[in-house]
Nucleic acid binder design. Structure first.
Lengths: 191, 191
DNA sequence: TTGGCGCGTACGCTATCACGTACAAGTGTT
DNA sequence: AACACTTGTACGTGATAGCGTACGCGCCAA
């Protein structure tokens, strides 16, 4: 059972360790996991238990979930105003501001909602995977959030944070157009 | 070494399995991990290896990082425009739009940069923990990003995504004030 | 050159994971 | 009542994680 089913955990640990300029013995001291074990993990010879992996991550100043979702792509990507990916209809238009890269950890989009329009309906299924969280910032107009049976009114400049995997949608209760940024933070399914 | 150092993984697996109305044998079939092992993990008797835990998570239709960071709190939190936490100086002002809650996965803030001002200098150390990623959306004016030895110019409506743990800062090269939203996605240290 | 030090890894041993089998308990049907 | 089925867990066994020790290698100073 040395087949590493979490691809790249070992190489990720090694990259982080090198980045912090730690030797295996340094990290062994910080994490309480032996240097030979760290070496085996980095080379993919063994798969550590959750308990041990948590200690390794702590030695790297990370939680285990952080360690597992680190992304090595690391380049700077600019999405110019003219390059935004858009969509929508029925009074609801949106544009995505983050690049369509794998491992993208927070997706940012800008939405425009006409007066009386809504992003969805009360019986819509949740559109985000389990564990996703959303922050929405109202930049223009007024907005009403329906989330899990509750209603929240938001004015210009207000922000709301909630679990995006709950049934939810926004509507514009005002007389004019509403605009808002939506930030959805979810770990994408690693492929 | 059966001490569960990732608190609640077993109870979380059991909660999810019950929520999906699966028996141990059902999940064993879906995950390829034996029912007795699943039982031991749920009761905290053993700590599974990363490889096994990944298979358990897959049987629950989750990635391992999702499983590890599932959060049962799920409340809606509103930060009104008047409640923003602010700071800054030297031509750089900012306000945080996300609540100071543990487990917050993406922090959203709005920044104002006077003409010629900067968020930092070329020799500043990285201000974010390893693994953090940032998306910045220019809502007014022009902005210049210095990141890891490279320079990127951004106009109004542009967005940039990069590793926030690299040395970086923004400056306003224009004649007028610049405003932007910054989204920093990093899992906070679980406490 | 030699000696010392730091580094990653090989190796052997022990503890624990992970499996398959079987048991005990509960439920439902005849 | 007996029987069949489902469920979670106990148990024994084999495989492997994880440790401590020691090795080989490279680098640096005297």
């Amino acid at each position: 059972m040395a087949v590493a089913e979490a691809p790249g955990v070992g190489t990720r640990i090694k990259a982080l360790r090198d980045g912090l300029d730690l030797s295996l013995r340094d990290l062994a001291e910080r994490s309480g996991v032996s240097a030979p074990m760290l070496s085996q993990v980095e080379r993919g010879e063994t798969s550590p238990t959750i308990a041990v992996a948590t200690r390794i991550a702590a030695g790297l100043d990370l939680s285990l979930s952080q360690l597992l979702r680190l992304d090595e792509s690391g380049s700077v990507t600019v999405v110019h105003a003219s390059e935004r990916r858009g969509g929508g209809g029925g009074g609801h238009a949106y544009e995505v501001l983050t690049p369509p890269l794998p491992g993208q950890r927070a997706e940012v989009s800008e939405h425009t909602l006409a007066a009386g329009a809504a992003t969805g309906g009360p019986d819509d299924p949740p559109m985000h995977e389990p564990g996703a969280r959303e922050t929405t910032v109202v930049t223009h107009g007024n907005l009403r959030l329906h989330c899990d049976g509750e209603v929240h009114d938001l004015a210009e400049g207000d922000a709301v944070t909630f679990d995006a995997d709950l049934p939810h949608h926004f509507e514009n209760p005002g007389r004019g157009e509403a605009r808002f940024f939506a930030v959805v933070a979810a770990g994408l399914r690693r492929s």
